[in-house]
């Protein structure tokens, strides 16, 4: 049941991404509203699916929040990105980040549904995952990942927008006109990076508490732990370069993309290294 809804959500997010792209080419208007409505419907359906999945797991007698394996984490990642994006769209009253963020939610859903290695079955929790810290750890980590994903999208936008118009340059393709001002992008990117940094820190802390109870050490240089620290250092560097060195714009955009690469490696790449967090083992 939940999987049927989630398969539909994949298509809806695809539609939303297409509408956002059309919006980018044809300016605001009907398509923009259609994009927002589609994305919101998708998010609502996905929320329902997550709840249904939770309830179904309880009916099977193995009740747990749907945050326990690669399939569920991909779905939840996509959910948080879409949620944060729509909140941002609502707050800044601007759809221009849509074409850069919504395809990512679609790709996550498509990967979860289509990859032959990923099972959508509700599985019971192995003993190591049976902890009250599971929910708070996964929740905070993915809020962080999602904020960083949006910051990365904004970084892309900044780089596409190009540097400040040099003297004599003919200003603005339609794409550049569609995108918000450099200052606005820079500020938004910075806000997203802060939000992500706070959540990543909380994610690392909750993870350390959990590791303390499960494995008898709060930090053990497991590849996932190490990569989360590397990611944390990259974003700490980003925030410091702005506070202390006053970096703005292009450099921040590049750092946000480097950071996002680290996030994705922390999330998926680490599975190919040996370690306790590997989703592939289970």
């Amino acid at each position: 049941m939940n999987i049927v809804i989630l398969n539909w959500v994949t298509f809806i997010y695809f539609g939303a991404a297409v509408f956002y792209f059309i919006t980018m080419l044809r300016e605001e208007g009907f398509w923009g509203k259609a994009a927002t409505v589609t994305a919101s419907v998708g998010l609502a359906a996905q929320t329902v699916a997550l709840i249904v999945r939770w309830v179904e797991s309880h009916r099977m007698g193995i009740g747990h929040a749907p945050l326990s394996n690669l399939y569920e984490s991909l779905i939840f990642f996509s959910w948080t990105v879409m949620l944060l994006y729509l909140i941002m769209e609502f707050r800044i009253k601007n759809r221009s980040a849509g074409p850069f963020v919504t395809p990512f939610t679609f790709l996550l859903m498509a990967y979860a549904s289509l990859s032959p290695n990923i099972s959508g079955q509700i599985q019971p929790l192995i003993p190591a995952l049976k902890s009250n810290w599971l929910t708070s750890h996964v929740l905070t980590c993915f809020m962080g990942y999602a904020s960083f994903a949006i910051a990365g999208g904004l970084g892309c936008m900044y780089l596409l927008k190009g540097e400040e118009g040099r003297a004599g340059e003919i200003p603005a393709s339609s794409l550049a006109r569609f995108l918000p001002s450099r200052d606005a992008l820079d500020e938004l990117l910075y806000q997203c990076a802060i939000l992500g940094f706070i959540f990543l820190t909380l994610g690392i802390i909750t993870g350390a508490v959990w590791a303390h109870y499960a494995w008898g050490r709060y930090w053990g240089w497991d590849p996932k732990e190490t990569w989360s620290l590397i990611t944390w250092l990259v974003y700490a560097a980003l925030l410091h370069s702005r506070y202390v060195r006053g970096w703005r714009g292009r450099r921040m955009a590049v750092m946000a993309l480097v950071g996002l690469a680290c996030v994705l490696f922390t999330y998926l790449g680490v599975n190919y290294l040996p370690g306790l967090h590997s989703y592939l083992q289970s």
Partner: peptide, 24 residues
């Protein structure tokens, strides 16, 4: 110097990456 901070952070990050690749 903040430059020292940056250099240290980069070196620590790179060695941490090394540690996840080389078996420990």
């Amino acid at each position: 110097s903040v430059r020292l901070t940056v250099v240290l952070l980069i070196v620590i990050a790179v060695s941490a990456v090394l540690g996840t690749v080389v078996p420990q």
